[in-house]
Design a protein around this nucleic acid. Structure first.
Lengths: 145, 145
DNA sequence: GCCAAAAGAGTGTATATACTCATAAAAGTA
DNA sequence: TACTTTTATGAGTATATACACTCTTTTGGC
């Protein structure tokens, strides 16, 4: 049982390592847009769900609620995202994409497509298809506690 | 080509998402030891390579050199790791596991094994075996720039 | 309507991540 | 040897991550 005796086989370590390695390429590619990968992902989710309360977004991103709150700060600072109190429920904060934010997202899209194509090409489309499924399964497996 | 038009298919986003989800379990499991997953990983690598200069360790961890420097700080603070100037080359800083650090690592090992077993069980050993290979390939693919 | 419980969200604190720039020492070269 | 280049590293800054705690508002039970 190598998997349970050799820390180099650590599932967490290997996932984080791969995430670090890949993130650097995406961040580099999105640099001309003034966006990080995480920020692009948030805008992408918002493009579909805006406006939506914080908890709904953090669920969609599989990101801790408080993490999302912090991550929204620079986006709000840049005027790409606006946060408004909910009309029906004053506890809720509705996060929405501004016009500027939607433009920034659309400008970033081709840059993302380029690096995505490049990276999947390197990984190999076949392997990536498999990997994406396995990652999705992993997220669900981790979340089911 | 769904992979190049739907940001939800983003390789980076999916990797980071899975890393986040899994990290929470490992951090929770290692909490009684006073270690985070990243710290455990560093100790595990040091258990094999200690003493080693910063650049050598960051290479082994596929972690940015400056990131490792920051990550070492709390470990040094807890006395688990010591950093000494190189005798041969005064530019180098040799990072080494202290006796206390080795003990902390050995105490943490069973906790890691438990969560590793639990997580691989959830993911499924077959899928994990495949995933680990694919992650390794991804790291190499990303690094070959 | 009153009050306890639950839901939605922010803050304090600490770690994780990495780019840019600065520093110092070793190695190479004329 | 003096000068340049390369190597090893740290510091400044900014974002990413999340647990514990707190605050406010809503909801449910009576």
């Amino acid at each position: 049982m190598k998997d349970f005796s050799d820390p180099a086989a650590c599932a967490c370590f290997n996932l984080r390592k791969a995430a670090r390695a890949v993130t650097q390429h995406y961040d580099e590619a999105l640099k001309p847009c003034g966006l990080r990968t995480t920020q692009f992902s948030i805008l992408a989710v918002l493009a579909r769900l805006s406006p939506a309360p914080v908890a709904r977004l953090s669920g969609a991103l599989v990101m801790d609620r408080t993490t999302l709150t912090r991550n929204l700060k620079p986006l709000v600072g840049q005027g790409l995202v606006a946060i408004l109190p909910g009309a029906d429920d004053r506890r809720k904060r509705n996060v929405s994409l501004t016009a500027k934010g939607r433009k920034a997202f659309e400008r970033a899209l081709p840059h993302w497509q380029a690096v995505q194509k490049e990276m999947i090409g390197r990984i190999t489309p076949t392997r990536w298809q498999r990997l994406e499924k396995d990652l999705g399964h992993t997220v669900r497996a981790a979340a089911e506690s």
